[in-house]
Simulated assay, not measured.
Amino acid sequence: MGILSWIIFGLIAGAIAKFILPGKDPGGIIVTILIGIVGGLLGGWLSSKFGGAGVNDFSLMSFVWAVIGSLILLIAYRLVFNKSRS
């Protein structure tokens, strides 16, 4: 259930990250969703590295980690692709 939970969290976290960091992204909504999914997985990995229990159920702390992971990836994506456009 762990990976599936992070994918579901990632879908929602991608939308939340986009809401927190509004603006035009180079890839559109599909890329933002994919960033959210990968960000959710990154959040799960970060949680386990920083002493979290990982995700076994839907909890608020797990969701926070998924949003953090999505924000990190969205910022990195914007930095890489906005510089290449300039």
Rank of each mutant, 00 (worst) to 15 (best):
I30P: 04
L21P: 07
P26Q: 11
I30G: 11
I30D: 03
W6V: 04
I16Y: 10
I12G: 01
G10M: 04
I7G: 05
D25Y: 15
I30V: 12
I20R: 11
F19N: 13
S5F: 02
F19C: 13
I20K: 08
A13G: 00
K24A: 14
F9H: 08
S5P: 00
P22H: 14
T32E: 15
G28E: 07
L4Y: 03
K18E: 15
G28S: 05
P22T: 09
L11H: 03
I3E: 00
F9Q: 08
F9R: 02
I3H: 01
I30Q: 08
I12K: 06
I8C: 04
I8A: 05
K18R: 15
P26F: 12
P26N: 14
A15D: 14
W6S: 04
T32G: 09
I16D: 09
G23C: 08
G10F: 01
I20Q: 12
P26I: 10
I29V: 14
P22Y: 12
K24G: 09
I29K: 12
I33D: 07
A17V: 05
F19H: 13
I29M: 15
G28R: 09
A13P: 06
L21V: 09
I29S: 15
I20M: 13
K18V: 13
L11R: 00
I7M: 03
I30C: 04
I12S: 07
I30F: 12
I29E: 13
L4W: 04
S5G: 06
I20A: 15
I29L: 13
K18W: 11
A15Q: 11
G27P: 01
I12N: 00
I20G: 12
V31A: 11
P26Y: 11
W6N: 01
A13L: 06
S5M: 10
L11P: 03
G10W: 01
I12W: 05
I33L: 14
I20W: 08
D25A: 14
G10P: 05
G23Y: 07
I30N: 09
I7N: 01
A17M: 03
L4R: 05
P22F: 09
T32L: 14
K18A: 14
I20S: 07
K18M: 11
P22A: 10
W6D: 00
I29F: 15
S5V: 05
P22I: 13
G10V: 01
G27S: 05
G10Q: 06
P26S: 13
I29P: 08
L4G: 05
A15L: 11
T32V: 08
G23P: 07
K18T: 15
I16E: 13
I8R: 02
I8E: 04
F19M: 15
D25I: 12
A15R: 12
K24D: 14
I16C: 08
D25F: 15
I12R: 05
T32Y: 07
D25P: 07
I33V: 07
D25M: 13
L21R: 10
F19E: 12
W6K: 02
K24R: 10
I16N: 06
A15K: 10
P22M: 12
L11Q: 04
G27N: 07
G2P: 02
G23I: 06
L21G: 08
A15W: 12
